[in-house]
Nucleic acid binder design. Structure first.
Lengths: 332, 332
DNA sequence: CTGTTAGCGCTTTCAT
DNA sequence: ATGAAAGCGCTAACAG
């Protein structure tokens, strides 16, 4: 900076002001400065700037599982808002590990991310009570931790499930199963939609139609046949569903494979409809119907919310819902 | 820091040294300092530290497409090395857009990432010649740009393809097609493996068996039926392959869908074998055989390489190859 | 319209 | 074994 100042025969203050447009500079001076900057190939050092300004212009996006279009699209939505606002989005993957999540969020907060968008691994975000995290705004996506004191943005889980199960009912299914890979609050919303749809149609709920575990979360990748697979033989025998509503894409893997391996035809023997729209639903035989979320939009809204907070906005913390869409394919 | 110093009745220099273990401190003093730190909840400000030290302890991982297990696994491998070494890995997704890649790499470099691991979108990394990028080491993964002057880590593309095509040949296929979504240098290596396998078996190469475009890269997500799909009718009629070697997972989507939609049986009518092992290869009917890469290992090696450079290591730039593995399923 | 200068919070040399 | 103090590169308050 000094070199540039010398080359343009001005003070370093002027350099700063030219760069940041933070006060009037006469045309000839500005031009000299710009030329000097160009000739010397000068670039501001963001670390020094951040130290001085007390902000980093970085927003952390901590997701539980990157290997999922949901989060990739979400990230794109976030960036579409944050980039024009002058923020860099840094994605960090916690791979469904609470320990990694905690560490990541902590590192990010310490690195002075100006804000953090967080897709929590589980319900437990108590680590956020820590003093370290009182300095920057948070927005939750996809999952809403208990008593958070933060904004959160998520899908219309109840309504999406309600409509999906209604569709199954309208196709004449009376025994509709609910299978999910685990039961966090988001999943409970989907479960409620399922229950409500049944009861609104006068169908009595049955315990044995529900298969929902407390399993440790797993990633699609290492999951093959693990999730739910082994419990299915028993389940199908006792519950005898003619249709199954899958609470998420993770559960779909095991169920789909079990049915295929055992020659149970879809949709003839059992109809399938899944919350989440995984890529492979279009590659499988039959292609699988799904309740598609709109992760891009979730990202957009979350980023807007965060932006507002980072700019000092206050106001009540809200939970914002983004609409889902029912996509009918061959499985029901 | 001053507060801590006051509370422990020592100088701030001592605080620093206690925290960093950078010189001997008497036990009683250390203890007082530690207690003060704890009581005041003091945490070092990494921005200030970075400014002083001229390093950020951040490594940027710029990938072309996050919605791909390849890169997610790669990221995990990178982190497994870098985290213990005291570096934070920040992932940035360029979504197969050269423009976004350039901007991302630039931002990262300016943010003083200490090093960058880069999976280039295309062959053209000429923007790296820019002076901005002379300060920190780069390592390329997956794709090696022309005349890079950097390390790169990638799969044994030639060998993997060679073995795969050999397997097809051993199954009695004589007319083996090669279809890929686009032709960068990595793809050319795979293509060479294909050619070599044919010629080593005395099979004459045929132009019309090869379908390899210059298309703009696309993401799986928005790809459905686009890639290759429309050209396939003509291709199959003129080339009449009994087996197809797919250069990458992107190409597989269109081909698989076309065959399915047109009632062409796999492997009876046409055998399929693909480079890359996509998740859906295990969900499709039939399940698709593949040449699996080892992205985790690629990440590990790339990170080790980068670490060496960041620590001032010099030495010739190398291209390191990570072994692939042939996974036989139902499609051939 | 422009310049001088005081820090931002830390590390590290130089003294003691 | 400890402390004083000089910056790292920038921004912004203050002064003209």
């Amino acid at each position: 900076m000094e070199d540039v100042a010398a080359a343009a025969s001005v003070s370093i203050a002027t350099i700063s002001h030219v760069i940041n447009g933070t006060r009037n500079v006469s045309d000839p001076v500005r031009e000299r400065v710009l030329r000097a900057i160009d000739e010397l190939g000068y670039e501001v050092n963001p670390i020094a700037r951040n130290l001085r300004k007390g902000s980093s212009q970085i927003v952390g996006l901590v997701v539980s599982n990157l290997a999922n279009y949901f989060y990739t699209d979400l990230a794109a939505g976030v960036e579409s808002i944050l980039r024009p606002a002058g923020y860099d989005t840094h994605i960090i993957n916690s791979n469904e590990s609470l320990e990694r999540e905690t560490r990541n969020v902590r590192d990010l907060a310490l690195q002075s991310a100006d804000g953090i968008i967080l897709a929590p691994t589980g319900n437990d975000c108590s680590y956020l009570q820590d003093a370290t995290f009182q300095n920057q705004p948070f927005v939750f996506v996809d999952r809403k931790p208990r008593r958070s004191g933060h904004d959160s943005v998520m899908s219309t889980n109840f309504k999406g499930s309600y409509e999906a199960v209604n569709h199954l009912l309208s196709k004449g299914h009376a025994r509709i199963g609910f299978i999910a890979s685990r039961s966090n609050e988001t999943m409970m919303e989907r479960f409620s939609g399922y229950r409500q749809a049944l009861s609104d149609s006068g169908v009595a709920p049955e315990e044995e139609l529900v298969l929902m575990g407390q399993d440790e979360p797993k990633t699609l990748k290492n999951l093959l046949r693990a999730e739910r697979y082994s419990q299915l033989e028993n389940y199908l025998e006792t519950a005898r569903p003619t249709g199954i509503f899958l609470g998420n894409g993770l559960a779909a893997v095991g169920v789909f494979q079990y049915l295929r391996d055992n020659g149970i035809r879809v949709p003839e023997d059992i109809a399938l409809l899944s919350f989440d729209d995984e890529f492979w639903y279009q590659m499988s035989t039959p292609q699988i119907s799904a309740v598609a979320q709109d992760p891009y939009q979730i990202g957009v809204v979350a980023a807007e919310r965060l932006l507002k907070r980072m700019r000092g906005g206050t106001g009540k913390y809200r939970t914002i819902r983004i609409k889902t869409r029912l996509i009918l394919r061959e499985s029901c």
